[in-house]
Design a protein around this nucleic acid. Structure first.
Lengths: 285, 285
DNA sequence: GGGATCCATCAGGAACGCTTATAGCACATG
DNA sequence: CATGTGCTATAAGCGTTCCTGATGGATCCC
């Protein structure tokens, strides 16, 4: 119910201790104990087992709700403040991995010429973070990238009424090791590669490929970062294949299914002003 | 911040009056005035213009967040209570329009034979309502239907950590008026029908078709209900075309793009028990 | 077994939020 | 133009809530 109680519960669960949570939140241990008791009474079921302190089944479930819930609350605050705030001449553009390619960069350059008083900060962020940063108000605009069918919108985490508009679509290529037998081809079909070994990276999630092209796509090395150079090096060394936008790395064009590297611009409420102008310039639609 | 304040704000905005909202919520007018003042102070901006009472720009934006936010809060409560509750022998299955077809019905029948002590209530609901009913705890299971590429998951409104599993996929047919020149064909391509007039109904949203097959799909009559007989009658009378699952009505099979009528079963946390058994029986995966 | 640590409980006090009462404002009416 | 009516804002009072500080009981470690 009360977001503060939820925050306390999250902290206790994370730290595994009422006392430590109290210290972190600036409460007394007694207050934390009472807050948890209130929450448990409200739901009619224990959320934490004591000694040691660990979430119960119901508590685990409650925790799964807690993060998105608090995010939405923050998003509502941030969105309203954005509407009410004076038009800003400084804004932050959160860009996920592979989201800021040549085409968007060029459009950004043109827009900055037209909007000389605007100071833009581009902030790199992890895959899936951009929408959260925009929702939470830490960035005014966000760029997210993903693999999709042409003009098919990306699936963004739902963190409130964000506007998402297509900003760029680019062909995909299959990145292959140097001496790979298929490296000379003029084009490849994904169906022919289901049995190959694939790199598992946030830049090219294998679950997405299975959604789009059926089962298969055995995972080789698992890389959790988002550095393009690392990925291309891993591919060259034969750890597995991956899909990349054509402008990012050399590779063999993907012919079928018809998939593209799609970039979308996401933003919340944008009152008329430089931020809205920039958004319009980045996502001409 | 406090959900109660948000609820008060929504009520005031809906009724256009502090006094009326106070009466409806069982507060005094003074309390409502103070609550709105608190909310505005917290956000640092007016949410309502007074005399007459109407939302400001920021208030409009806040209202857009309010509904989903309260829904998520309810969803969290309902989900946790579901985990903690004793295994129920009565449960409700919310079924959206066209979601409960022959295959699912047959599986439900088989499951009820195996689970004789289970009492099932099937509750029809509007398109898009099923997920909300499940999230809010009014139904344990939900069936939603939509048009999608084969094994492509549907896009459900994000109301919390719901599990969605494919329950059925069925070919689509194009429903045509009786004497339509294409009625005799063995199959049709959507691309050949972009310029036809289409019925606009929740059962076959034209935006979805445009997503999947490009622009076009001119809207003829707009029907807001979900009665299948009404839709087939409207089609027969020439008001427009529509897509339906093959089992629902006669029509010409849709050949391309490869789209299916997909049904998914959605549910929240299901502790072992009859509800989980039924879910497993309905969505064999 | 003794000490330390941790959570639950209790009592007291501060803070919050609602009610009652009243002031202030806009608009309609005579 | 004065007045009444209907609305919201503000002030004071008060009950409830929620936090603090102290204490008790349980568990773990030495």
């Amino acid at each position: 119910m009360d977001p503060n109680l939820v925050r306390t519960f999250m902290t206790v669960a994370r730290l595994g201790s009422f006392s430590a949570a109290a210290a972190e939140l600036g409460y007394t241990q007694s207050a934390v104990s009472q807050q948890i008791a209130t929450l448990e009474a409200d739901l009619g079921t224990p959320l934490l087992s004591r000694r040691p302190v660990a979430p119960t089944g119901a508590g685990e479930r409650r925790l799964q709700h807690a993060g998105p819930l608090l995010l939405r609350i923050r998003a509502a605050r941030a969105d309203v403040r954005r509407v009410a705030a004076a038009p800003a001449h400084r804004l932050t553009l959160a860009a996920g991995p592979l989201a800021l390619g040549p085409a968007v960069a060029a459009r950004l350059a043109r827009a900055r010429v037209r909007l000389p008083r605007l100071t833009v900060t581009v902030r790199a962020c992890a895959a899936g973070e951009a929408a959260r940063l925009v929702a939470g108000g830490e960035a005014e605009l966000g760029l997210v990238a993903g693999i999709a069918a042409p003009s098919d919108p990306l699936r963004l985490p739902d963190v409130g009424p964000l506007t998402a508009t297509g900003a760029e679509e680019e062909p995909l290529v299959v990145a292959l090791p140097d001496g790979h037998p298929l490296a000379g081809r003029a084009g490849l079909r994904l169906a022919d590669l289901v049995d190959a070994r694939w790199l598992r990276t946030p830049l090219c999630p294998l679950e997405r490929l299975r959604d789009l092209a059926g089962d298969g796509f055995r995972a080789g090395l698992h890389y959790t970062g988002d550095d393009l150079r690392t990925v291309t090096s891993l591919v060259a060394a034969g750890h597995g294949l991956t899909l990349l936008p054509a402008s990012a790395a050399p590779g063999v064009p993907l012919l079928a299914p018809r998939l593209v590297h799609r970039v979308e611009l996401v933003h919340g409420a944008l009152p008329p002003g430089p931020a809205a102008d920039l958004a319009a310039a980045l996502a001409p639609s």
